[in-house]
Nucleic acid binder design. Structure first.
Length: 659
RNA sequence: GCCGAUGUAGCUCAGCUGGUCAGAGCAGCUGAUUUGUAAUCAGCAGGUCGGGGGUUCGAAUCCGUCCAUCGGCUCCA
């Protein structure tokens, strides 16, 4: 007999060699139907794998990552079996469960598999699933495994086997298919009731472009058909929110073959949106003691050789621009920091001047590979909401806190409620990788940790993820569909001050090296606008909407009054339109709703008589009537409420010092 | 860059196996309509079917090439 301990600390006795599934059944049949794997003393087991010793166990249901993982991984194997039956001789790479489903990398030999082949594969999978073939686990010696795969002629699996240790190797078999696999799997293929193969893509073996390209088939599966349908619906919704689609519909931006791919053309409405974001951040930054600077789009090649960026971006990016002068070369700037360092060097600095905070919406150019381009999120020219803070080491923590405040202000204004924070520190065992003294690193890391703690951030700390030039703090937001996006970043840099020989004079009348902080709360305007579009589905908050209101006269008889309302509101600093078309009111409402204009103001004879507007809010319908001043105030309040700055005592103190 | 797919009017798309196949809806223009909370009606105009080649008596339709766009290119057996 063995003792099994459950998560609630209760203990039950079972006979040795009992399986997870049998234990689950002994508790209740409904439980047994809901579990997909079982964690035994921290190791995830198949439900059908015997438990030989006393153990603490935890059942993994669909809600548990380990449960989903086993389910999707089993689905990948099911697909592999189908592929082997349909395409005899196919070779297999890896087939893991991923965040939202699974994939398998295969080498189909001379054949090519395209999306049109997926239905046939799905059909075969369905057939194999209905056979309810058990997934059986077998411990094998390395030699046995090597022999199996050399016989099969699958050199990918043989390569994988090279890296595995004797005694840890297991094979899983279901139906006619055997795969080298760590497991765990669900008991049999019949568990996989609902699935869909989503797309086919090329993927390099082991992710290395020097290796052969395999065919990757992505899929997703669920224990119930309804769950699959829900998931597919979610994917549909994501498609509907695609910033490229909405960007076109709302006339925000476009690309032109003539101008070049990856080079954004901001249309008037998109430019207005971007401008509102920039104005907002400029205002916030002014309050936090930043100074705007403006620097050119190109710089001498030597500048980037000095900064080290030439090494990183020079060869693989836009080629240097040569001039009629012998040996003179310029580079499109891939980063703003070298320019800002030169501004810092314009005059000597005292410790009393620091920190110096320099901000610029600086446009940079990097040559992304053609296949990497993607809407606004991956482009070849983009504008960073960049700033560099040059400060003393003892000011790091306070500066971090202020940047965090700025980022919070933005998140609040834009309604990003869910976000994750990651602190990337150095790996102390890998000291050679990093530039800067131990003492400085110590200080910087401590500053970040304290700043995040003081701000009450629940940050994930990752060792070894720091850049070679300094530790960093990253923010990731979750959008309305729960997708994660990397946004703002704050990075400490010891490297550039060194390379540019930046200095300040300390209280001791000695020269000291300032520390630099790079930070970009939005990241880049292009990427951020893309995220914002997908987050809001194009229904921007009032302060950002390119058109904030539209006046809809019921008939020509009230056009004069409509114009009066329009002029009144425009004078009140609101942006809007006047829809004088001779369409019926229903049509005007529909068209303007589709343009996602926040407020539709219907005016007819009734409104003209009373000096009012009938307010209709985008997506919400009729809100009743208001008089003109009332509506203007109402709109102004809504905007102010959104973009008011988080009250911050540090910022206020700073402002006083500067006046 | 690589693998696969796609590329027809401003937009969304139809056009199967090559022979009235150059179409529809929306948008645009013109006219009628003067309208009360998500599409009023009619007419007109719009494309050398991504570019440039080839096969063919004949190509949007087949082949190869270039360009662009889309899905991807380690979340490790």
């Amino acid at each position: 007999m063995i003792k099994i301990k459950f998560p609630d600390n209760s203990i039950r006795e079972y006979s040795t060699g009992i399986t997870g599934l049998e234990i689950a059944k002994s508790i209740s049949h409904s439980l047994a139907k809901e579990v997909y794997s079982v964690t035994v003393n921290g190791e995830v087991y198949d439900l059908t794998r015997p438990i030989e010793h006393d153990a603490s166990i935890k059942f993994n249901k669909w809600e548990d990552e380990e449960g989903q993982h086993a389910f999707w991984h089993s689905s990948a194997h099911l697909m592999a079996e189908a592929l082997e039956e349909l395409y005899p001789g196919v070779k297999f790479g890896i087939g893991p469960a991923i965040e939202n489903g699974f994939y398998y990398d295969i080498d189909p030999g001379g054949r090519s598999i395209s999306e049109s082949d997926l239905p046939a594969i799905e059909k075969k999978m369905k057939e194999l699933a209905q056979q309810k073939n058990p997934y059986t686990r077998k411990n094998v010696s390395k030699n046995e495994a090597l022999e199996y795969y050399s016989q099969k002629g699958d050199h990918y699996k043989l390569e994988l086997l090279q890296d595995l240790d004797e005694g840890t190797i297991t094979l899983y078999t279901h139906g006619s298919f055997t795969d080298l696999c760590r497991g765990p799997h669900v008991p049999h293929t019949g568990y996989i009731k609902a699935f869909k193969l989503l797309n086919v893509a090329g993927a390099y073996w082991r992710g290395d472009e020097k290796n052969k390209q395999l065919t990757r088939i992505y899929g997703v599966s669920f224990p119930k058909q309804s769950m699959l349908e829900e998931h597919l619906h979610m994917l549909e919704q994501a498609k509907e929110r695609d910033h490229r689609k909405i960007g076109k519909e709302l006339e925000l931006f476009t690309f032109s073959q003539m101008v070049g791919s990856g080079l954004t053309l901001w249309l008037p409405k998109g430019a207005r949106l971007r401008e509102s974001l920039e104005d907002f951040l400029k205002k916030v930054q002014r309050d936090y003691g930043y100074e705007q600077v403006i620097t050119p789009h190109i710089g001498q090649k030597e500048l980037y050789v000095l900064s080290g960026h030439y090494e990183k971006y020079g060869e693989s990016s836009f080629r240097p621009i040569s001039t009629p002068a012998e040996g003179e070369e310029f580079l499109l700037k891939p980063m703003n920091c070298p320019h800002h360092c030169e501004i810092y060097k314009f005059k000597p600095h005292s410790y009393k001047d620091l920190p110096v905070r320099m901000a610029e919406f600086g446009t940079v150019y990097r040559y992304e590979q053609s296949g990497e381009l993607h809407g606004l999120t991956r482009v070849r020219g983009f504008t960073q909401d960049d700033a560099h803070i040059f400060c003393r080491p003892d000011q790091l923590k306070e500066e971090f806190i202020k940047v965090i405040d700025i980022i919070f202000t933005i998140f609040r204004a834009l309604d990003f409620k869910d976000f994750l924070v990651q602190i990337s520190l150095r790996d102390k065992n890998d000291g050679d990788k990093y530039i800067g003294s131990d003492e400085n690193w110590e200080k910087a890391e401590k500053a970040i940790l304290e700043a995040t703690r003081e701000k009450g951030l629940d940050a994930r700390i990752v060792y070894g993820e720091a850049a070679f030039y300094g530790p960093k703090l990253d923010f990731m937001v979750k959008d309305a569909l729960g997708r994660k996006w990397q946004l703002g970043t704050i990075q400490v840099d010891y490297n550039l001050p060194e390379r540019f020989d930046l200095e300040y004079t300390g209280a001791d009348n000695q020269k000291h090296r300032p520390v630099m902080i790079h930070r970009a709360p939005f990241g880049s305007m292009e990427r951020f606008v893309a995220i914002l579009i997908e987050h809001t589905a194009g229904k921007f908050p009032l302060w950002l909407a390119p058109e904030q209101f539209v006046i809809l006269p019921i008939s020509e008889k009230v056009n004069k009054y409509a114009e009066k309302v329009f002029n009144f509101l425009k004078n009140d600093d609101l942006r809007g339109l006047l829809d004088l078309r001779s369409e019926k009111i229903g049509k005007k409402i529909r068209d303007n709703e589709l343009k996602r204009i926040p407020y539709l103001l219907v005016v007819g004879e009734k409104e003209a008589d009373n000096n009012t507007v009938s307010v209709r809010k985008q997506g919400e319908g009729d809100k009743g009537s208001m008089n003109l001043e009332e509506f203007a105030n109402f709109a102004r309040m809504e905007i102010e409420k959104a973009i008011s700055i988080v009250n911050n005592p540090v910022a206020i103190k700073e402002r006083r010092k500067e006046t």
